[in-house]
């Protein structure tokens, strides 16, 4: 077990336990925020696992999760909009903490990988992860009122 896998274990265990606790208890707004936290905790963990196992192909999983995780959150934001409009579903402190953690993981991996195509791919994943996270949080907080209902 090297340092990368240890960091992935901490990210999977800590982020997973926090997201599981949030997604099973509390009002609907908190559950959706915890569901969004799943993506931002597991995507850096998958990146760290790819580096820890020494298999760059595993990075594809993190790329797919960074693409599809916000899509899943937007599905809930759209279809649960009646429940969410009654409460304030914004957690900007958590959003930016998750974004900083994801950026830290991506930067550490970029330093380890060195310049090249793999580094460009890591940067693309980082931008997708943080951008999707911010967009999903804004949708949950009611930032896109124009697309409500339906």
């Amino acid at each position: 077990m090297n340092g990368w896998i240890l960091a992935a274990t901490v990210a999977l265990g800590g982020g997973g336990a926090a997201a599981l606790w949030g997604v099973t208890t509390g009002p609907p707004a908190r559950r959706v925020i915890a569901q969004n936290l799943t993506t931002s905790a597991f995507c850096p963990a998958l990146l760290l696992l790819a580096q820890g196992y020494g298999r760059p192909a595993y990075v594809d999983l993190a790329l797919l999760l960074a693409l599809l995780g916000p899509v899943g959150t937007l599905v809930f934001a759209r279809l649960l909009s009646d429940d969410l409009s009654a409460q304030d579903a914004s957690a900007w402190g958590l959003t930016w903490t998750a974004a900083v953690l994801g950026a830290a993981a991506v930067v550490a991996l970029c330093v380890a990988v060195g310049p090249g195509r793999a580094m460009v791919k890591l940067l693309v994943i980082g931008v997708l992860l943080i951008g999707g996270n911010v967009i999903a949080s804004r949708a949950l907080a009611g930032g896109f009122r124009g697309v409500r209902g339906g």
């Binding site: 599981l20 597991f42 999760l65």
Partner: peptide, 9 residues
């Protein structure tokens, strides 16, 4: 919601 978490896990 829990199922979505479980799928990712």
């Amino acid at each position: 919601l829990v199922l979505s978490f479980l799928g990712t896990l």
